[in-house]
Nucleic acid binder design. Structure first.
Lengths: 126, 126
DNA sequence: GTACGTTAGTTGCACGTGCATTGAATGCGC
DNA sequence: GCGCATTCAATGCACGTGCAACTAACGTAC
């Protein structure tokens, strides 16, 4: 049936996501003391060329995380000195987040791990 | 670069998983008082024709959940009267889990929702 | 100006998950 | 028989997440 094809697709999606997210989580944590969500945030921040950083809202659009989870993830990164929060002057409700030098270094160190894990896990799991 | 193709694949995988798991979770919870993991367990149990049920270990192979998470998921299902645990007589370390009549009913009610959410979400997200 | 609805981000809380440990049962070597 | 490593499942604990409530700032209407 049509339904069963879709269910198989869902299970396959689920399997791949579990394998990859689990591998990423442990590799990043073990080798770079970074959680997967934290790396994702850093990755977007460094990827965005804009030196003023990104607003929380923009981050939220790119990363699939609830607003509260994102807020705490950024708080953890800030506590570790990897990002800084800056009040947005034009709209004082907004918060700009930008990586520190330490954050850029940590990201640069972690990125090869991230890429490698994705490549090998995706290759071996299909 | 090759890496960036893989990263895009990962982000796409991540996006689809988030959309679908989130939709499933809320639909199942709202309409049938079932978490996604709980439905998955029920689905496997009902799907397995063997009347004696499945061992925890077999469930663990099919569902991507840590052993402890699976143990607690089954505990929740048991508390709600949807499954029963039975000591395995041949290997008394093992535990057989099988659905109760109420479990079968709940599963039968929830399955159409599950299938529908998968179909519509997968269709609209690619 | 004031009042009201909306938007941005943070926080209290409950919950599900993973890791590590524990307890019990098994199988193997002797 | 007696140990000893292994396997299965349950539990203590810490942590990340989502939901709902909250605070602060903005925009609009009056």
């Amino acid at each position: 049936m049509h339904d069963e094809v879709a269910v198989k697709a869902w299970r396959e999606l689920s399997r791949q996501y579990a394998a990859l997210s689990c591998a990423l989580e442990s590799a990043l944590q073990e080798q770079h003391k970074l959680g997967m969500s934290e790396f994702e945030v850093l990755d977007r921040l460094v990827g965005a060329q804009d030196c003023t950083g990104l607003r929380m809202q923009e981050l939220g659009e790119q990363i699939h995380l609830s607003q509260s989870a994102l807020s705490r993830t950024v708080a953890r990164l800030e506590k570790d000195g990897l990002v800084e929060r800056q009040l947005c002057t034009s709209d004082r409700r907004g918060v700009f987040v930008h990586p520190t030098d330490a954050g850029r270094e940590r990201h640069a160190a972690a990125r090869p791990t991230h890429r490698a894990v994705i490549n090998t896990t995706l290759a071996s799991s299909q």
